[in-house]
């Protein structure tokens, strides 16, 4: 509604209302800018995954699609390996949150421990995902074998790339803290990284849910989207 009010204002008038609507400008705010940019970036990534998922649902309605869960011989009918990987990513997210809490309270030890654990679990997650790939390959589920397989590799790869990007940014943040030795400058970028970590966890959960869905669930979702 605020947006509507802004759009309805008449900028050529010099009345007090316009002046009130003006932001109290105190120089550009680094942290706020970072938050806005991150929000937009997460929006872009959401659109990316949204579109992948829409195409997944659309593609699932063609007769050659064989969901990866449902029948007993399908790899994700028993999703325990995926749960294990999810646990790793959740620990990583949790560790980031702890590290952030440490930064807020000014405790460097906790920050270091949190970030290290987060990075460790994130790398472990990636390794576990890679192992899952090899596992599926060894079971004969190749990338081109079936569209469901293709989507499994595609979605996990795109998710993994986003996580790797996050790790690079995180290492850069750590690097700068190392040199600046200034804990206060860490808090804001660490906040952004933590948000990103949680976001990737959510994305992973959605991907997880989709990959382990039984054909009936997928068909129902596709029907809801009109495919």
């Amino acid at each position: 509604m605020k947006a509507l009010k802004i759009l309805r204002s008449k900028p050529w008038l010099h009345d007090s209302e316009v002046a009130v609507a003006a932001p109290q400008y105190a120089g550009p705010d680094t942290a706020a800018a970072g938050r806005i940019a991150l929000r937009f970036f997460l929006l872009v990534v959401s659109v990316l995954f949204f579109l992948f998922i829409i195409t997944f649902l659309s593609r699932s309605q063609y007769p050659d699609f064989e969901a990866l869960a449902g029948a007993p011989w399908q790899p994700f009918t028993d999703p325990s390996r995926l749960w294990f990987n999810t646990g790793l990513l959740a620990f990583s997210s949790l560790a980031m949150q702890l590290g952030l809490a440490g930064a807020h309270r000014g405790k460097l030890n906790i920050v270091v421990a949190g970030i290290s654990a987060a990075a460790f679990f994130a790398v472990m997650f990636l390794v576990a995902q890679l192992d899952l790939w090899l596992h599926l390959q060894s079971m004969g589920f190749y990338v081109g074998g079936n569209p469901a397989n293709s989507y499994f590799y595609l979605l996990t790869a795109v998710h993994g790339l986003h996580l790797m990007g996050g790790l690079m940014v995180l290492s850069n943040v750590v690097f700068r803290v190392w040199y600046d030795d200034e804990l206060s400058s860490l808090s804001s970028p660490l906040q952004l990284c933590t948000t990103y970590w949680h976001f990737l966890l959510v994305i992973w959960l959605v991907v997880f849910a989709l990959l382990t869905s039984r054909p009936e669930t997928i068909n129902a979702l596709a029907a809801m989207c009109g495919f």
Binding site: P11, V18, A21, A22, P23, P28, D29, A33
Partner: peptide, 24 residues
Amino acid sequence: FTMGGLNYVTTVLQARTHGMTLMR
């Protein structure tokens, strides 16, 4: 484009000077 685009959007939303409302 995404790198540039995030920049443009954030700059417009965050770095407008004193008195530069959106409708100005």
